[in-house]
């Protein structure tokens, strides 16, 4: 079958999709977006987390056909997504939004949560990182000043085996603090 969807703001089409394929498989193997990871294919680890029409989903548990006509944001589009949010956030003028610059880093444009993960040491092997970034970004979108208990609850669907989560907590706190300073 053919699946048409919008990924990271761009219309995409995948042909010859077998009905049993997941959204994760289509993103990774048919659309060349391997950022979302396949660590359990059971919805337990959160490594494949993406936004589907704004909602957090485990893309391994979404049939590709269910994404027909919908909007997907993956880690590859997170910087754009975050920049777009800043541009439309209440209290931020258009001019200010246009002047917005992410923290520089080797030419790459990063969302604040991405930069915070690097700065706080929240990345080791990095396999869980894309899913955690998408989930943490959504948390800060919904709740700009989360408590530690809020952060733990929001990220409890994303397994990490390297860090012991302490530096991930630091990264989310850091991104929230930087966000608060900027507004």
């Amino acid at each position: 079958m053919r699946v048409s969807l919008t990924v990271n703001g761009r219309p995409q089409q995948a042909d010859d999709v077998w009905e049993g394929e997941s959204l994760l498989y289509v993103l990774r193997e048919r659309l060349g977006l391997p950022g979302a990871k396949n660590a359990c294919e059971q919805g337990e680890c959160g490594s494949c987390t993406v936004r589907l029409d704004g909602e957090l989903v485990c893309s391994c548990l979404v049939a590709a056909g269910q994404a027909e006509g919908r909007e997907v944001v993956t880690v590859e589009g997170l910087a754009d997504h975050a920049a777009g949010r800043r541009a439309t956030a209440p209290g931020v003028g258009l001019d200010e939004a246009r002047r917005w610059q992410p923290v520089p880093g080797e030419g790459a444009r990063l969302a604040p949560i991405q930069q915070a993960f690097i700065d706080a040491g929240a990345v080791q092997c990095g396999f869980c990182t894309p899913g955690l970034l998408v989930a943490a970004d959504e948390l800060l979108e919904q709740n700009p000043e989360p408590t530690d208990a809020d952060i733990r609850e929001a990220l409890s669907g994303n397994l990490c085996r390297c860090t012991g989560y302490e530096k991930i907590m630091d990264a989310v706190r850091l991104a929230a603090a930087r966000q608060a300073e900027e507004v």
Partner: peptide, 14 residues
């Protein structure tokens, strides 16, 4: 770090 937070880092499964 940057490759890993942008999804560009190529793991063996990628």
């Amino acid at each position: 770090g940057i490759l890993k937070v942008t999804g560009e880092f190529a793991y063996s499964s990628d």
